[in-house]
Design a protein around this nucleic acid. Sequence first.
RNA 1: GGAGAGCUGGCCGAGUGGUCGAAGGCGCCUGACUCGAAAUCAGGUGUACGGGCAACUGUACCGUGGGUUCGACUCCCACGCUCUCCGCCA
Length: 435
Amino acid sequence: MLDLKAVVADYEGVERKLARRGVAAVDALAPVKPLAARRRELNLLLEKQKKEQGEANGRIRELMKTDKAAGEKARAGLRALGDAVKGSEAELGEVEARIQALLLLVPNPPQESVPAGADEHGNLQVSAWGEKPALGFAPKPHWELGEALGILEWPQAAKLSGSRFTISKGVGARLERALTAFFIDVHVSRGYTEILPPYLVSGETMTGTGQLPKFEEDLFKTDGASPLYLIPTAEVPVTNMHRDEIFEAGALPISYCAFSPCFRAEAGAAGRDTRGLMRQHQFHKVELVKFASAESSGAEHDRMLDDACEVLRRLGLHHRVVLLCTGDMGFSSSKTYDIEVWCPGQDAYREISSVSNCEDFQARRIKVRYRGADGKPRLCHTLNGSGVAVGRAVVAILEQYQQADGTVLVPEALRPYLGGLERIVAQKFPRGVER
RNA sequence: GGAGAGCUGGCCGAGUGGUCGAAGGCGCCUGACUCGAAAUCAGGUGUACGGGCAACUGUACCGUGGGUUCGACUCCCACGCUCUCCGCCA
């Protein structure tokens, strides 16, 4: 959320920064301007009225002690003043609620260093690690490999839940569990604290990180009197964990890693990535979250990117890093790097991690602050990044480590987590005939 | 799910209609004393929004939201959360 004070102080400046996101962002902000002016008027009026009321009440208090009759008489005249205060309060509350509702729909302005662009074609490659493995045969996509190996299963999943769900079996299931443990172990060794958060959260929590109110159609929601939402990423509960808190100076940065399943409605993605593991309603992810000071968030952002890349380096997975352009960034982010891993079976680099600096955009919504050198509370900067998506790591391993005979080598770093397994070979599981 | 108790400042805790941002204590900061520290003494110590170049200053905030009242931490209603006991349960 934008700072109303900043919007009022320099409307044109804020507008110019927002314009890099496109006209829709500017249009979202426009109606705030007249409301802010009205809010200021009401604030001044209300303070004046309250001061009058306070003074009048003081007089009555004294009167009641000395001359009860006169006091009773004075009471009657104050009714109007009390009503006026209530009226002003009501209108101010209404105006503030409208401003709030509008500001919640305005995206975070991009940092200066973010390149301009309308969509993913404007993204900028900033680095790459490793190279495309020389397979020497026509690589298969992971869905063919997974099915042939018997470790990934879609027809049965569709029977249970419909499209965009997968069942992992045998080594396939163990592979996800192994990757999860491996990712967490790497991040913990590099200073992150492990968190296992709730997977269902309130609407308030979803609003704190920016999923609501604008992106409700992307979320799964429970029925009932007090509905809850299924988290689309552990970023949501972990970032909201410190809502309304003030950190003492020196406590920052605070770094968390959290495994969770992620639930996404994938509204609007009809027909895209319908095969395989790429785009599921439910997937697993290890998420990184940091709370940093305003001064250090840029450096922490780079460090988080490196932490996410580290797990891919240890797995020997070829990948590249792109800096997202203004048109491709998420709502809450001021700057985002995507890590794209090479998927030879799809002949494409596919996103496996997204590392964002939200600056104070989320912190303002959830009031997470820290004391600066002067002892005054300041908003934290929040950062989040995948470290990394587990299902997509399975995809990359299957596709990059596939062999001509259809087996898949296990990256060395992962073998201790799989009981020393060096190679995934076809497995058979009991199966009846469908009738 | 049922019954009871409670929710006040960083923490503990007083306050049952008016002078309460709120007693007292703890913690923390500053100063005095000390070679230094402890102890002791004195002073200070919240957040938000607004006004002022600034020193400063106004208003609000006692779980949340309503209501009663000239005036609510204090009375009424609803909700949330915590704790204890009972039931159920992986």
